[in-house]
Amino acid sequence: MVLARWWRTRIPRYRLIGAQCKSCGRAHYPPRKACPYCGSTELEQVMLPRRGILESYTVVQSIPGDTRFQAPIIVGLVRLENGVRLVAELTDVQPEELKLGLEVEATMRRIREDGDNGTIMYGLKFRPILGKS
């Protein structure tokens, strides 16, 4: 049963909060205790832009049985408007609609479920920008 592990990481996942390094100025997601670029621990949490472009993507075919009803799982490498990159699932998109440079935006979705009697992990995925797809 998954409880504290999903709970303690919920805020960045719900609100797309990253960390900005006061030393080198670079931001990253999700927030870490030390800057992955320069090692500084002088970081502040920042809201990241919710829009970006697709730098790469893949349609995952081999997925566990309990997520079969969600197939295909589509994963993207997204570069947000401020340059921060992240790996995230894409949603509300068909494989044939995918292309490099596709404009995407964050949307709240179910990410995982702890079986059918446990808790649900929510978080942001990315979809083609409304009205531009």
Binding site: T107, M108, I111, I120, Y122, K125
Partner: peptide, 16 residues
């Protein structure tokens, strides 16, 4: 609703 949506996720986006 899509396979990763529910009343919570839809309610969130309306609230957002």
């Amino acid at each position: 609703d899509g396979p990763d949506e529910d009343s919570t996720t839809m309610g969130f986006e309306a609230a957002y």
